[in-house]
Every structure is written in structure tokens, then in C-alpha cells.
Design a protein around this nucleic acid. Structure first.
Length: 215
DNA sequence: TTCCTGACTT
DNA sequence: AAGTCTGGAA
């Protein structure tokens, strides 16, 4: 059993299954992945709610960027994200906006297509691959890096290297990656914020940053 | 004033 | 490497 597998077990024991991603439909999941770029989830929820019954590929494909920008205003970067949502939707139309059809495609091919979409980088692509398309790519975000760093890991700069760390040391399993990333987010929000709240941290026994303070 | 599950351009 | 995009909550 690897260190990362032990970390997963500790987080799962501490927080329980997260049952991610918080969305009603796969398309809503993909939209949320774009809207949450460098943005708090609270603000994304407001933007999602503003869509009402318009959170569909048909609406986004037809609407002007200005109209979408108005709807998603609370999520920030609304002009850029409006364009990103239209680009994402254009990609989805290649599969007839049919998630079942998209899931039949090869994971590596889908990843290449998503990375080619303007405004979708590696983190957003992997989130969509994992949580909407059920492809086993580990999602690396700022929380992942911060937690690993504080635990004492050497965290590479390159996104793909960090992803490789996880995928090389864990079984390539969609459910495992789903829960692991969700648990890292939960841990970052509850304890491992930028200004860490180490009181009653479930990882305190194994956390290097905590131990350094004790020294 | 800082921070938020980034990605792109210069 | 640094600058840009942005509102909202703490």
C-alpha cells in the first residue's frame, strides 16, 4: 500500500464519502467546472441558480456571450467564462450533446479534445473527464498541491507530473479518483486553508507542517 | 484586504 | 515570470 493510498484511507475515515460532483446533470457538472476556475464554489452556485431552466447546451449555443455573461456574473471573470462556456458547448455538440455517446469515446482522445478547447486547461479537462465522462484521470488543483506540500511531499511544478504521481501510485479507478479529489477539497476547506486551521485536524499525526511547528 | 477547486497572453 | 480577467464572502 502506497503513502497516497494511506492518505486516501485517512481522509475517507475522517470525512466519509463525498458523493461528488455536486450537480443535477452531466452538462451542469461541466459548466460548473468552468465557472469554478479560481472562484469560490459559493459564487458558482449563485451563477448556476441564475440559469434557471436555461442550463442547457441549446441555450448556451444560441445565446450571445453578453447574455451569458450577465447570467454568470456572480462567478467572476464573466466575459471570459461566457466565451469558455460557448466553446465547451461547441465541443459537446460533436457528440450530439449526448453524454452516453461522449462516454463511449477513448479517454485520451477526449482529453486531447478538451485541452484544445479555449479556456479549458488540464485541471478543468480532468474534472470533466472524471466527473462527467467517468474516465480515470486524477484532478490536480491548488488544494492538492497545498495539502501534499504541507504533508512533506516534494510537489513538482508541472501539472502532468503531479497527476502522474497519483496515477502511478494508485489503481486507475474512477471511483477512487472521484472520492480522493473530493476528499482533498473537503480537507482543504475544513482545515488546510491558506491560513491553516490545525486544531482537530485529522491528519495532524502525519503532517510535516504541524510537526515543524512543534519542533 | 485577502482569497477563491485557473487559464491565457505578453 | 508577470499581468489580466472579476464578483462576493470573510
Amino acid at each position: 500500500m502506497t503513502d497516497l493510498a494511506r492518505l486516501f484511507d485517512a481522509l475517507l475515515k475522517a470525512y466519509g464519502p463525498r458523493n461528488w460532483w455536486p450537480a443535477q446533470t452531466p452538462f451542469e457538472m461541466m459548466v460548473g467546472a468552468v465557472l469554478t476556475q479560481n472562484t469560490s464554489w459559493k459564487n458558482v452556485e449563485k451563477a448556476i441558480a441564475n440559469f434557471g431552466d436555461r442550463l442547457t447546451p441549446a441555450f448556451i449555443a444560441e445565446a450571445l456571450p453578453e447574455e451569458i455573461a450577465c447570467i454568470i456574473r456572480p462567478s467572476g471573470y464573466y466575459n471570459q467564462k461566457a466565451i469558455k462556456l460557448k466553446a465547451l458547448t461547441a465541443w459537446y455538440q460533436r457528440y450530439g450533446c449526448d453524454i452516453g455517446k461522449a462516454r463511449q469515446a477513448n479517454g485520451e482522445q477526449l482529453r486531447g479534445e478538451l485541452l484544445a478547447v479555449k479556456g479549458i486547461g488540464p485541471e478543468t479537462a480532468d474534472a470533466i473527464l472524471l466527473y462527467a465522462l467517468y474516465k480515470p484521470f486524477f484532478v490536480v488543483d491548488a488544494y492538492t498541491r497545498r495539502i501534499l506540500h504541507r504533508l512533506g511531499y516534494e510537489v513538482p511544478q508541472a501539472y502532468e507530473s503531479v497527476r502522474g504521481m497519483f496515477e502511478a501510485n494508485l489503481p486507475r479507478d474512477v471511483y477512487l479518483y472521484n472520492e480522493f479529489h473530493a476528499l482533498l477539497v473537503e480537507h482543504a476547506k475544513r482545515h488546510c486553508q491558506k491560513q491553516p486551521a490545525c486544531g482537530r485536524c485529522p491528519l495532524e499525526a502525519v503532517c510535516l507542517e504541524r510537526n515543524l511547528k512543534e519542533w
